[in-house]
Amino acid sequence: MTRPEGAKRRKFLVVVDGTPESEVAIHFASLRARHTDGVVTLLAVLEPGDASQQWLGVQNIMKEEAREEAEQLLHRLASHVNEYAGIRAELIIREGRRAEQVKALIEEDKDVAILVLAAGTGKEGPGPLVTLVAGGSDKAFNIPVTVVPGDLSEEELRALT
């Protein structure tokens, strides 16, 4: 598929957390991006730690370790996206509350066209972002959201795209 010169590439945003469900969302987004000449944007959000932390030094060390883990996860997943779909992923790390950071990124980057989430399959429920979208909250996102079942097989994923 060829894009008109100067046309922007549609971005499929996936919030990653290392769960099997987020990998299903990555696979879905990767296949859709490949078929539409789009981009996969992988977002890791470092949520604030326990506010009762008494030692700033310990808190800073924990924050740095969380950032390093997020970077490693993003690079591993980006490599996987490249092997899986033959495309390069955009990697972003943000700090703050997950839903707030997703909203902020969507508002800042107008190329983000679709948020891809995978519903959790455990007894904890579908996950906080899916719950936010499904609840019709005014805090939901102002772009289309695709929610894929977190337990889709590879065959089922490929059949959808």
Rank of each mutant, 00 (worst) to 15 (best):
L73G: 01
L73A: 10
L73E: 13
L74F: 12
L74V: 15
L74I: 15
H75W: 12
H75V: 08
R76L: 02
R76S: 08
R76E: 14
R76K: 11
L77P: 00
A78M: 10
A78D: 15
A78F: 12
A78E: 15
S79M: 06
S79D: 15
S79H: 13
S79K: 14
H80Q: 11
H80A: 08
H80E: 15
H80K: 09
H80S: 13
V81I: 03
V81H: 11
N82L: 05
N82E: 15
E83Q: 14
E83V: 10
E83S: 14
Y84V: 03
A85I: 03
A85L: 02
G86T: 14
G86E: 11
I87F: 13
I87W: 13
I87P: 00
R88M: 03
R88W: 05
R88S: 10
A89G: 11
A89Q: 09
E90N: 13
L91C: 06
L91H: 02
L91I: 03
I92R: 09
I92G: 01
I92P: 02
I92H: 05
I92D: 02
R94F: 06
E95H: 11
G96F: 06
R97N: 07
R98A: 13
A99Y: 12
A99Q: 09
A99G: 04
A99I: 01
E100F: 07
E100R: 08
K103A: 15
K103Y: 03
A104V: 05
L105C: 04
I106G: 01
I106A: 05
E107A: 12
E108D: 13
E108A: 13
D109M: 03
D111F: 05
D111M: 07
D111T: 14
D111K: 08
V112I: 15
V112Q: 04
V112P: 13
A113V: 00
I114F: 10
L115V: 03
L115S: 05
L115T: 04
L117D: 04
L117Q: 11
A118Y: 01
A118K: 00
A118I: 01
A118Q: 00
A118G: 02
A118S: 09
A118E: 00
A119W: 03
A119M: 02
A119V: 00
G120L: 09
G120I: 06
T121L: 02
G122Q: 11
G122F: 03
K123W: 06
K123C: 00
E124D: 15
E124S: 10
E124L: 07
E124K: 08
G125Y: 04
G125E: 06
G125L: 05
G125M: 04
P126L: 13
G127S: 09
P128K: 05
P128C: 00
P128T: 13
L129F: 06
V130F: 02
V130M: 01
V130C: 12
T131D: 15
T131K: 11
T131A: 10
T131R: 12
L132H: 11
L132W: 09
L132K: 12
L132R: 12
V133I: 09
V133P: 06
V133C: 08
V133L: 04
A134F: 01
A134R: 11
A134N: 09
A134S: 12
A134I: 08
G135V: 06
G135Q: 08
S137G: 08
S137V: 14
S137L: 06
